[in-house]
Write a protein that binds this DNA or RNA. Structure first.
Ligand SMILES: [Mn+2]
Ligand SMILES: [Mn+2]
Ligand SMILES: [Mn+2]
Ligand SMILES: [Mn+2]
Lengths: 220, 220
DNA sequence: TATTTAACTTTGACTATTCAAAATAGCCTG
DNA sequence: CAGGCTATTTTGAATAGTCAAAGTTAAATA
C-alpha cells in the first residue's frame, strides 16, 4: 500500500525520533531525506491526511501509532536484509546499507519470515542495530558509548551507530566491530580524545565524536 | 538508471518478441503490462527517444540492442531471484513469480553475482526458463511441447511456460515438473485431448492448450 | 471502390513527488 | 519594542506515469 517514498519518510521519522519526545523538526527530516524543506511540508500534510503522522505546524512532525507500525515494518525489513547480505552472501558490512535501502521496499512478509528463520531469528543486525520483532517491538537499547562510559573497565562493543561506509571501514580496521572486547584507557576532554585498548594491537586514539558512535556494554 | 516502469516495458517486449521478428504490436504490450493502449504509445515514444526501442507507428515496437541489453539484465535478475527463493528459501514455485516481479528491480550487480555463485551458476530457473548469462546470452531453447512432440517416446519435462499460480499448482500436482519423465500415450485431435503417462500414477488427460505449455525433450 | 472495423494515436486531465523562490511566523537581540 | 534571522510554509512549475475519450489510419469486408 505505502509507496517507497512514504515508507522512507516514516522510517526516517522513526529513526530521528529516537530518544527525543518524538517531535521531529521539518528541517531534520528534509536533511535526512535529502529533499528541500518545502517538499517535506507538502508530503507531511499528505501523510497527516492519511493518519500516519501528526503535524504541528512550525513545530514538527510525529508518527501516529499507525505510522509507527509501518515504520517498524520497514526497519525490520532493512535490518534483516542487511543481516542476510552479511551472513549468507558474505558482503562487506559497509556496503549492505545501500543495498538494504532498496530491498527494504521489495520484500514480502512471506519472504521476510523465511529470511528471519534462515538467519535464526537474529536480535541485532551486523552493526548491532536492534531488529524490530514481527509484533513491532523495538529494543530501546540504551547503551553507553566510548565517549561516555566509565574508564578502565572491561567492555564489549555492542553497536556502531552511523552507517557511512567510511566510518564502518574505519571501525572494522580498528577492531571495533560488535563483539570485540575493549577498554577505555583514558580521556583528554580538552583535546577531545579518547584512548582505547583492544585485546590485540596498540592503544587506539579516537575523537570524542567518533567515540560517541561506538556503543559499549560491560563485558561478561 | 532505468526506472522500474521502463524495466518492465523492456522486459515484456523481450518476452513478447520470442519467436517472432521482434516487432511487437502496441496492443500486445498494453495487454501484458495491464495499461491502456494510449499509455503504451506515450511511453514507447519516450523509450524511442532514449534509444531503447524502435517505434514503427501503427505497426509495433522492437527493442534496440541497447534496450535488449537492459531487458536481458532484468530477466536475469528475475530468474535468479526465483531460483534463490525456491532453492534457498524453499518457497512454492507458484508463488515466486510475484515476488520476483518486485525484487528484479531492486537487486544490484554485486548481490546478483553472489546469488548466482551461491546457487552454483544455474542455467535455468525453477520453471525451466533459461537464465540469461552475465554477458547477455539467452538460450533460444527450442523444444517440443506435449502437444507437438512425437508420441510413444520417452521424454523429460524441461520447462513449464506460463507462470500463473493455478497452472503451476496443477502441473506440480500432475507430476509435470521439470525433470520428470513422461511419455505421450495418445492424442485425440478432435477432442483436443492429450494423454500422458508418468512414471508413477495413472495416465493423465490434458487439453491441447495445457499440453502446449509443457516443453519436453527426448529422455536421456 | 465504398464502408466498416479494429488497432493505434492524440488530447486533456489527474496523481505523486519534487524544486525554486517568495512569503510568513516566531524567536532572539539590542 | 523594532529589527533581523531562521525555520517553515506557500506558490507556481516541472517530471513520470497513467486513464478516458475522441480522432485517425489502414486493413478487411462488402
Ligand atoms: Mn542500514
Ligand atoms: Mn544496520
Ligand atoms: Mn517468473
Ligand atoms: Mn520462471
Amino acid at each position: 500500500m505505502a509507496s517507497s517514498t512514504v515508507e522512507n519518510y516514516l522510517k526516517h521519522l522513526l529513526l530521528l525520533a529516537e530518544g527525543g519526545d518524538g517531535l521531529v523538526p521539518m528541517g531534520a527530516l528534509a536533511g535526512a531525506l535529502a529533499v528541500v524543506p518545502g517538499t517535506v511540508t507538502t508530503m507531511v500534510k499528505a501523510l497527516a491526511a492519511g493518519g500516519l503522522v501528526e503535524h504541528r505546524p512550525r513545530q514538527g512532525v510525529r508518527l501516529t501509532d499507525a505510522g509507527r507500525g509501518v515504520a517498524l515494518g520497514v526497519l525490520r525489513r532493512h535490518r534483516l536484509v542487511e543481516t542476510f547480505l552479511v551472513q549468507v552472501l558474505k558482503m562487506d558490512w559497509a556496503a549492505v546499507h545501500a543495498e538494504a535501502e532498496r530491498l527494504e521496499h521489495a520484500i514480502s512478509d512471506d519472504v521476510l519470515d523465511r529470511l528471519d528463520a534462515l538467519l535464526g531469528h537474529p536480535a541485532v543486525d551486523p552493526h548491532g542495530d536492534p531488529i524490530p520483532t514481527r509484533q513491532g517491538r523495538l529494543d530501546p537499547s540504551v547503551y553507553a558509548t566510548l565517549a561516555t562510559c566509565v574508564a578502565d573497565r572491561p567492555l564489549r562493543v555492542v553497536r556502531v551507530t552511523e552507517q557511512s561506509p567510511e566510518f564502518l571501514h574505519f571501525a572494522e580496521h580498528s577492531g571495533l566491530r560488535p563483539g570485540t572486547r575493549v577498554r577505555v584507557a583514558g580521556r583528554n576532554l580538552a583535546a577531545g580524545l579518547v584512548t582505547v585498548k583492544r585485546p590485540a594491537g596498540r592503544p587506539l586514539a579516537l575523537s570524542l565524536a567518533a567515540a560517541g558512535k561506538i556503543l559499549v556494554a560491560p563485558a561478561r
